[in-house]
């Protein structure tokens, strides 16, 4: 009996240690990134780094404001294109989809989620870029198709699976009484869904949007291929931009010394963005 009690204790310890690893991992990632990033920040000056509008690493001018703007624009664009379509599709899946179609469609959104981002990047480069280039020339906006609009659409497509699955789950979590009550009062199918069920699932849908936003901010490989990557502040959506993630990936290989630290500091800024989004998400799930 005593041995068994010992076993219990030991295993509880093991479980506890395992549980601590994820905390440790976050702590480690923070320490490593911040340690390496702050070197650059202190040398360049945090304000100059964040608000500087010129990025010319070969003469040691490091300003990442254009990249912050780029990430914000592209993320906003992705949310604007991906979230409404995602929510409507989720409504379709939950309330309209014929039973026979449901399983294959559900499976295909899972596949959409599993496709590597490199594949999306090539798809964007070969299919979406020429489309937008023609559109730009049609509207007289010029540009060669590698721009904010293209990146937003591509990212919009990439966040669809996340938005669809989270929204659908939250729609299904709304008790069917809500729908039936509304239907009994004579509301149409759409009124039942959009005036009663969707508002009831509000917090879940918001969480879906925020999750999608997180994916869009962090996306790298696909964005590099279609966003144009110019390190300057764009004046319209037919101009290219560089995101924070692109800045890191494009130049990491070549960078040395201060340049490299500046790139890691870019990663730190990105990390801060993600943390803010996560805190927001945690706040949402708590207020639910």
């Amino acid at each position: 009996m005593i041995r068994q009690a010992w076993n219990e204790k030991i295993m509880q310890g093991v479980f506890f240690v395992a549980a601590c690893t994820s905390v440790l991992a976050v702590a480690f990632i923070c320490i490593f990134l911040f340690h390496n990033g702050t070197l650059a920040l202190s040398e360049i000056g945090i304000w100059d780094f964040l608000s500087g509008t010129v990025w010319r690493p070969n003469i040691e001018i490091f300003g990442i404001f254009p990249m912050i703007v780029g990430s914000v624009y592209i993320t906003a664009g992705a949310v604007l294109t991906g979230v409404p379509i995602g929510i409507f599709t989720a409504v379709f899946m939950a309330f309209y989809c014929p039973k026979k179609l449901y399983r294959p469609l559900k499976a295909s959104t899972d596949i959409l989620a599993g496709i590597p981002s490199v594949v999306y990047g090539f798809f964007g480069l070969v299919v979406i870029v020429p489309l937008i280039r023609d559109l730009g020339q049609f509207l007289g906006m010029g540009g060669n198709g590698n721009n904010i609009l293209t990146a937003s659409i591509l990212l919009g497509i990439m966040i669809l699976p996340t938005v669809i699955s989270v929204t659908e789950a939250s729609l299904r979590a709304v008790p069917s009484l809500y729908y039936e009550g509304a239907a009994a009062l004579g509301a149409t199918h759409e009124q039942c869904i959009f005036k009663v069920v969707v508002p009831a699932a509000k917090s879940g849908i918001l969480a879906a949007a925020v999750l999608g936003m997180g994916r869009a901010v962090g996306e790298t490989m696909a964005v590099i291929m279609v966003a144009g990557n110019q390190a300057r502040i764009p004046s319209d959506i037919f101009q290219g931009v560089r995101t924070l993630t692109a800045n890191v990936v494009i130049e990491m290989g070549y960078a040395a010394d201060l340049h490299r630290d500046a790139l890691i500091a870019t990663g730190v800024v990105l990390f801060a963005f993600i943390l803010i989004i996560n805190l927001f998400l945690a706040y949402l799930s708590r207020s639910k």
Partner: peptide, 9 residues
């Protein structure tokens, strides 16, 4: 020029 599109590929 900063208006040049940049690619690493």
């Amino acid at each position: 020029t900063l208006d040049a599109q940049i690619t690493n590929s």
